[in-house]
Design a protein around this nucleic acid. Structure first.
Lengths: 210, 210
DNA sequence: GTTAATTATTGAACGTCGTTCACTATTTTG
DNA sequence: CAAAATAGTGAACGACGTTCAATAATTAAC
């Protein structure tokens, strides 16, 4: 009896006109950047050209996206938000905890393959990001999802509850990013397989099971 | 009866005069940079000023250290090499595997505290580094030590041997760096305590022990 | 021991990054 | 409507990291 997955990715929460304009400005800038990235590659495109293509001052672009990688983050985060309605029922089909995490990673692996070209700068960016470790701050979509899925496993007693969910989620996310980094550096590795191995290692641990 | 710990940190392996000069050039540049960092902080010091202070062209500096963080890496790595003779017998006193890893992390925590100021840029740099995931390449001192300590645990049967040592070491190092990042962002956290928690989590895993 | 190939170093110039500043326009609040 | 907060602009700036042609030192080959 699969209850609600409950991982609220994002709620726009309609505010004033200024906020609305800001959000569509974010989308406009990210869309412009993305088409340039696809046409010429991430490295080749400069912030100045993105600003020019979006018909916006460089300062304005930097105000919204302090570094180029943040544009990738916006696109990816938005894609996740759009795909979420389809993912959620898929997750609800399997048992919470480890099995559900595994299912999510499978879906994620497929998406990653389709974005492989632009994933490396994004992963590097996320790894160096403070937000991965600081609690309470605005977290990425992925972060919230991992935390929710892990909390479900804790609720069923499958995962240990003697450590805070956020700490477990942080470690899981680092293992996740590490695995992505590993696969991106070696074409021969399959993300799906490496994700499965990672989940096994993170759940069972380094030590042998007694 | 503690056998040899066997984690060969570095062997100079005396080569020609050119290599010898190169190595002392590395030390000279790193020493110059380090004294500037201590006097004015890591962020404030530019590569140009380091080059000037070392009486060397900017191009020469960049040839040896492609980014500023690599200077930190050189200093830290050298410090580890110098401290290693004192660390090794200390590790040999306790059982291999988890206990020895714990002891190493304790010693490391103390060293980290003394370098806290300059640790953040270093950790970020290492996280984004490809070498953390690619196999076979020249690895950092820490990487080699973790791999050796884990291999010892595998040899005694305490750690699982169904996955390659290098993969376990990679995950351990990411958990290690993640924990450091976490502590550096929150003054209230004690590195020693968080390292202990990390080891517990990595060894026992996310799942509850049956 | 002279020659040839490799490697280290240099200065100058360049493009990009990301920031600063003073200024204008728009939206929001009271 | 006035005051305050928020977006946007252009120009300039310091720093990053790279490129280039040219010179000096080391190593290898004949």
């Amino acid at each position: 009896m699969p209850e609600s997955v409950n991982t609220n990715v994002d709620l726009p929460a309609e505010a004033g006109r200024r906020e609305r304009k800001r959000l569509q400005q974010l989308d406009h800038l990210a869309d412009t950047a993305w088409s340039l990235f696809e046409a010429e590659g991430f490295e080749s495109v400069t912030m100045e050209r993105i600003a020019a293509a979006a018909d916006v001052s460089k300062v304005t672009l930097y105000r919204h996206f302090p570094v180029k990688e943040a544009l990738l983050r916006h696109v990816f985060h938005r894609e996740l938000g759009e795909a979420w309605p389809a993912i959620q029922p898929e997750l609800a089909r399997v048992a919470p905890g480890r099995e559900r995490l595994a299912r999510f990673l499978e879906l994620q692996a497929a998406w990653c393959e389709s974005r492989r070209t632009f994933l490396l700068p994004y992963v590097r960016y996320r790894l160096g990001d403070h937000r991965l470790t600081t609690e309470g701050r605005e977290r990425s979509g992925m972060d919230r999802i991992f935390a929710a899925l892990i909390a479900q496993g804790q609720a069923t007693g499958e995962f240990r509850a003697d450590l805070p969910t956020d700490l477990l989620a942080m470690h899981f996310q680092f293992a996740h990013l590490a695995t992505m980094l590993r696969c991106l550096g070696d074409e021969r590795l399959s993300l799906a397989a490496e994700f499965a191995g990672m989940l096994d290692l993170v759940c069972d641990g380094l030590g042998v099971r007694r």
